[in-house]
């Protein structure tokens, strides 16, 4: 009996060792392979660096927005108009509660939007007027990297950071990853808080994250984003392809001095502000 047990223990420990060792061996060999792959893949795309903060230009269409705060200061009702247009089009619930509120485009004070900028002796406009904030549709979006289900992803054709609500499991990794607070979580069933339905768009359900989608569904129909349409004629929101040198947005960017939210993070926001 004793002898048998000793044999059993020997065999068991050898098997266990082999079991523990095998994955390590596999990992070792595969990292070597991966590393060489990476090196090979990295070389052809390596470009001369443009400078510490220069953006490596992405190719293809990259949709972006310029927010001209001067225009919103001129017309204090304009921003509400833009926000309401978005709320209506996307069936966004109006929850009066900081924890549960859902925001796609909203107002925030300058010091919250640009915490890294100097706050002392700011101009009146900057101190007294709320800024328009929305998802930056970053060219290098941390939210996409964090999402375990690819529920949030970059649309290849236009650079929009979109969401497939069907796939969202509500883990909120993306909310932790987004440095701009651009995402909201549905803590409760949003439907009772939706005032009017747009029958062309779904609502969301409890447990799903949502954010601005640059009106992908409207662009597909040849329409402008709802907020841009609401500001039509004022030039307050300029929308277009950042990679097209002849686009209106590029003309504005070439002419005006603009800032991005915390550009030093390297997320490459596609939303620019004229203060």
């Amino acid at each position: 009996m004793d002898k048998q047990r000793r044999n059993f223990l020997k065999i068991a420990s050898v098997t266990a060792l082999a079991g523990i060792g095998a994955p390590a061996l596999i990992r070792l060999s595969s990292t070597a392979a991966l590393a060489s792959e990476h090196a090979a893949a990295a070389n052809p795309v390596a470009k001369p660096a443009k400078g510490a903060h220069g953006e490596a230009a992405s190719t293809g269409i990259r949709l972006g927005m310029v927010i001209d705060m001067r225009k919103f200061v001129d017309d204090p009702k304009l921003l509400d108009k833009a926000i309401n247009a978005c709320n209506l089009v996307h069936n966004i619930p109006q929850i009066d509660n900081r924890k549960s509120e859902i925001k796609w485009i909203w107002k925030a004070p300058f010091e919250n939007v640009f915490p890294e900028q100097s706050q002392s002796h700011s101009a009146h406009n900057v101190e007294n007027f709320p800024f328009a904030v929305l998802c930056n549709h970053c060219d290098d979006p941390p939210c996409v990297r964090a999402c375990p289900t690819q529920a949030t992803f970059k649309v290849k054709g236009n650079g929009i950071i979109a969401m497939d609500f069907h796939r969202c499991i509500g883990c909120r990794f993306c909310m932790a990853a987004c440095p701009y607070g651009a995402r909201s979580f549905n803590w409760e069933d949003p439907r009772p808080y939706i005032k009017k339905y747009n029958p062309d768009f779904p609502s969301r359900m409890r447990g799903v994250v949502e954010k601005c989608n640059f009106c992908g569904e409207r662009l597909a129909l040849g329409q402008e984003p709802a907020c841009v349409e609401a500001c039509k004629g004022t030039g307050a929101l300029i929308f277009g392809d950042l990679n097209d040198a002849r686009s209106e947005i590029r003309q504005v960017l070439d002419k005006e001095f603009t800032i991005q939210r915390n550009a030093s993070l390297g997320t490459k926001p596609s939303v620019f502000y004229i203060v």
Binding site: N91, F165, K196, P199, S203, M205
Partner: peptide, 20 residues
């Protein structure tokens, strides 16, 4: 199926008619 947790049935949509 959980389609209707988010998608609006015509009846649901009509219950809060959008006028814009």
């Amino acid at each position: 199926p959980y389609c209707w947790d988010c998608h609006l049935t015509p009846k649901e949509a009509a219950s809060k008619e959008d006028t814009h």
